[in-house]
Design a protein around this nucleic acid. Structure first.
Length: 106
DNA sequence: TCATTGACCAAGG
DNA sequence: TCCTTGGCCAATG
């Protein structure tokens, strides 16, 4: 099992209508303090063809991370989240208190 | 093979 | 409250 495979496996476990932070995923993947790998892994994932709900992964601030390298897929991510019933604050932030995924807590 | 980079996070100024 | 700095690991050129 490669490091990335673990990350992908966890991301696939994020339930509908909920989100998880990079640090949280890193924690579940036993990559304590290495949240960058999570972001890097998702950056390398094929967003178009993969079956990974990459749009449910956001940063610790509850915002959708955008980057010029993603050619506007950040907008797509926001749309997908809204389609799942997740609300965005006027500042473009998500209410982690309500939508943050709690592994095992259900 | 070495150096740079990249969707982050937490702490300090 | 916002911006800067350091640390972490893997992939790319």
């Amino acid at each position: 099992m490669n490091t990335y495979q673990v990350i992908y496996d966890i991301v696939r476990q994020i339930p509908y209508g909920q989100v998880a932070t990079y640090g949280q995923i890193a924690d579940l993947a036993q990559l304590y303090g290495k949240a960058r790998l999570v972001g890097y892994a998702l950056y390398r994932v094929d967003m178009q063809n993969s079956d990974i709900p990459w749009h449910r992964v956001i940063n610790a601030k509850g915002e959708v991370s955008e980057s010029p390298l993603r050619y506007g897929t950040d907008y797509l991510q926001r749309s997908l989240l809204e389609a799942e019933g997740i609300e965005f604050s006027p500042e473009g932030k998500v209410d982690l208190r309500k939508y943050l995924w709690r592994p095992g807590g259900e």
